[in-house]
């Protein structure tokens, strides 16, 4: 039985992942911004077999509360085996270009708040010399594109932060997983009208996340074909890439 902390439990991918752990009879601690949704998810996980589900309502951009979140989770789950960080927003790129506040807010949610949370958490895990930190990044972080580079740059910063953290914590047997989903059919992407063969369901991504945590992978693209797509995208020379409309 594992003890799993889920940050951003209202996200469709986080919820689908939590369901797998609930089905295994694990213990969960959920953090999200919306109290009503949090209770809806918690009830569902209890029915699905979670041994215990605790919830905490918090806005992750309120960095002052991070210490309290970690303390509460460790209090409820002293063995804390897995931390899944899943909160994030997909900002409107055009809007961000006209509005510094929106740009900085999305950088805060997608990057700064994760850094703020992981900084104390990394120290605690290092001290305990065990556990997994799995963080949802994005294929968008692999290369900046005109259509969503505000989002992409936050995820790119996050990738570098996680790389360094993995390097540091490998000495204390703490597992750091960077998750890079492609297009996933969730409420966050519901406004995008096209749905093609590249789109995955949150349940499929969740199964990939759990597998990657079980196998202690470092970086995982979900579904796996994105590794190949992004390899190609990354290898296009910048002189050509800058002229493309991506």
């Amino acid at each position: 039985m594992s003890q799993v902390l889920v940050i951003g439990a209202g996200s469709a991918i986080a919820e689908a992942t939590a369901r797998i752990y609930a089905g295994r009879g694990d213990r969960l601690f959920l953090v999200a911004r919306d109290a009503v949704r949090l209770d809806i998810v918690a009830d569902d996980l209890r029915v699905r077999g979670a041994e215990q589900v605790d919830v905490l309502v918090a806005d992750l951009t309120d960095h002052d509360r991070h210490a309290e979140i970690i303390a509460a989770a460790m209090d409820a789950m002293p063995e804390l085996d897995i931390v899944l960080v899943a909160h994030g927003i997909l900002p409107d790129q055009e809007n961000c270009q006209q509005n510094v506040e929106d740009t900085l807010y999305s950088i805060d949610v997608n990057f700064l708040s994760v850094v703020a949370l992981l900084t104390p958490l990394a120290n605690q895990l290092e001290e305990r010399a065990k556990g997994t930190v799995a963080v949802i990044s994005s294929v968008a972080g692999d290369r900046g594109r005109q259509s969503n580079y505000v989002y992409g740059s936050a995820k790119s910063g996050l990738d570098a932060f996680l790389q360094g953290m993995r390097n540091r914590l490998s000495k204390s047997a703490v597992h750091v997983l960077t998750i890079k989903p492609g297009f996933v059919d969730t409420p966050m992407t519901a406004h995008i009208p096209e749905r093609g063969i590249l789109w995955a369901q949150p349940e499929d991504v969740a199964a990939g996340i759990v597998k990657a945590i079980d196998k202690r992978r470092n970086v995982v693209y979900l579904p796996g074909f994105w590794a190949l797509i992004m390899l190609i995208v990354r290898s296009i020379p910048e002189t050509i890439f800058k002229k493309l409309s991506l």
């Binding site: 809806i40 998810v41 009830d43 569902d44 029915v47 699905r48 409420p187």
Partner: peptide, 8 residues
Amino acid sequence: SLNRFVSF
């Protein structure tokens, strides 16, 4: 997406 259990 309304695919959650409430109680059993």
